[in-house]
Design a protein around this nucleic acid. Structure first.
Length: 354
DNA sequence: AAGTCGGGGAC
DNA sequence: GTCCCAGACTT
C-alpha cells in the first residue's frame, strides 16, 4: 500500500472535528491558518471563534481598526500575523472585491501567507495539488524515511518540500495534507510517540533504527537576551492612566504599554530608576513612584527574557500634569487597548476601577 | 544563512 | 529547566 493511502486511511478513522474542516470557504480557512502558525490548535481555537463572531466576512475584518484587531489577537503572540491579516483583509476586500486568489502562486503573494499557508489554502479550498510542510510534516517524513538533514537548514527545507510534493496524493491533496499533519500531531508526536500502535511502524526507518527520539534534527537557535523593563503606571483619582504605543521595530509593535524605562540592571531603588530615565516622563512624576512588585516578574519570550517591574505614581488629576510628552495618551478605558500579556496580568491584579 | 517575532503547554 | 507548536519576514 502506498504511503499516502496508509495516511489517509488512518486519517478517516482518527481525524478530529475542527471547525475549519467543515468548509471550503477561503476566509475562515485563511484565518485559521494564520492563527495556527507556530500555535497549537488548543491555543488558537478560542481566537478563531472570537474572530469569526466579530468579523464574519473579510469585509468586516477589513472595516475594523487595527487597534480592534490587535485587541482581539491579544495573548496569541506573533502580532505581525494580526497586522498582516488586517492588511490582507483590506487588500482582498478593496482590491479584489472580497474574492480570495485561487492559486498557490497568487495566494503566496498575500502578506503573511508563505509557502505553508499558500499550500494549505490552495489545497483545502481549491484542491490544487501542492504539499504542505509544517512542523508535523517534518517530523513524520524525517522519521519515516530516516532523514537527518536539519529541518531548519536551507538544504532541509528544500529536501523536505521536494519529498512532500513527491508523496502528495494528487487526486485528493486536501485529504492527504490534512492527514499527514493530523498524523504528526496525534500519532507521530514529538515526544514518546506510541509506535506500538502505529500503522506505519513496519516501514518506518527511524523505528527500525531506534532513532525516533533523534529525529527530526534541528539546528540550535541563538540563546535569549535578557532585558529589564520598568513600567511606570501613572494614575489619577478619576481612573485615568497614561499609555504609550509601541512603534518602531521590535517586539509588540503597535501594542500599548505604560511608559517604559529600560534599565541595564534591576532597579532596586527609586534612585536607580531615575538614573535610567530617558525623559520619557518628567522628573517630578518619577520622584513619586513606588515599586509595586518586590521582585521583577520574569516574562519569557522565544528569544528574550524580560525582567519586569511596575512602579505606581498616583497623582491628583492627570490632565493638569505639565510637561507630558505628546506621544503619551490618557485613558480611563485601558481595557480597550491591546497590551502584552505581562501587562494584562498586571492590570488584572492591580484592578483598575473603570 | 541567520535573526526576529509570543505565548503556552507538555515533559 | 527544554522543546515545540498547521511559519513568515527581514537583514
Amino acid at each position: 500500500m502506498k504511503f499516502h493511502n496508509k495516511l489517509t486511511d488512518w486519517y478517516l478513522v482518527n481525524a478530529r472535528d475542527l471547525p475549519w474542516r467543515e468548509t471550503q470557504d477561503p476566509y475562515p480557512i485563511w484565518l485559521s491558518e494564520i492563527m495556527l502558525q507556530q500555535t497549537r490548535i488548543n491555543q488558537g481555537l478560542p481566537y478563531f471563534f472570537k474572530f469569526m463572531e466579530a468579523f464574519p466576512t473579510v469585509f468586516d475584518l477589513a472595516g475594523a481598526s487595527e487597534d480592534k484587531v490587535l485587541k482581539l489577537w491579544q495573548g496569541l503572540g506573533y502580532y505581525s500575523r494580526a497586522r498582516n491579516l488586517h492588511f490582507t483583509a483590506k487588500y482582498v476586500a478593496h482590491e479584489l472585491n472580497g474574492v480570495f486568489p485561487t492559486t498557490y502562486k497568487e495566494l503566496k503573494q498575500l502578506k503573511g501567507v508563505g509557502d505553508y499557508t499558500a499550500s494549505a489554502i490552495a489545497s483545502f479550498c481549491y484542491q490544487e495539488p501542492v504539499a504542505v510542510v509544517d512542523g508535523n510534516v517534518y517530523r513524520v517524513l524525517s522519521r519515516y524515511f530516516g532523514i537527518d538533514t536539519p529541518i531548519n537548514s536551507t538544504e532541509g527545507i528544500k529536501e523536505f518540500k521536494s519529498l512532500a510534493e513527491k508523496l502528495l496524493d494528487k487526486k485528493q491533496p486536501h485529504i492527504y495534507n490534512q492527514a499527514i499533519m493530523e498524523f504528526g500531531a496525534l500519532q507521530c508526536s514529538p515526544k514518546s510517540p506510541d509506535c506500538d500502535i502505529c500503522p506505519l511502524q513496519v516501514d518506518c526507518v527511524a523505528f527500525q533504527q531506534n532513532s525516533i527520539t533523534a529525529l527530526p534534527r534541528k539546528l540550535k537557535k541563538t540563546k535569549v537576551q535578557e532585558r529589564n523593563y520598568n513600567y511606570i503606571v501613572v494614575v489619577d483619582k478619576e481612573g485615568q492612566v497614561l499609555l504609550e504605543k509601541r512603534t518602531g521595530k521590535g517586539i509588540w509593535k503597535n501594542l500599548y504599554q505604560f511608559p517604559l524605562i529600560e534599565s541595564t540592571k534591576t532597579c532596586e531603588t527609586l534612585e536607580d530608576l531615575i538614573s535610567f530615565n530617558d525623559e520619557s516622563l518628567p522628573q517630578h512624576i518619577l520622584e513619586e513612584a513606588s515599586l509595586y512588585n518586590e521582585k521583577p516578574i520574569k516574562h519569557v519570550l522565544s528569544h528574550r527574557k524580560l525582567w519586569v517591574s511596575f512602579w505606581i505614581v498616583e497623582v491628583e488629576k492627570l490632565k493638569l500634569v505639565e510637561n507630558l510628552s505628546k506621544s503619551l495618551l490618557m485613558t480611563n478605558q485601558i481595557d480597550t487597548f491591546a497590551v502584552p500579556v505581562v501587562i494584562e496580568k498586571f492590570i488584572d491584579a492591580y484592578g483598575f476601577s473603570e
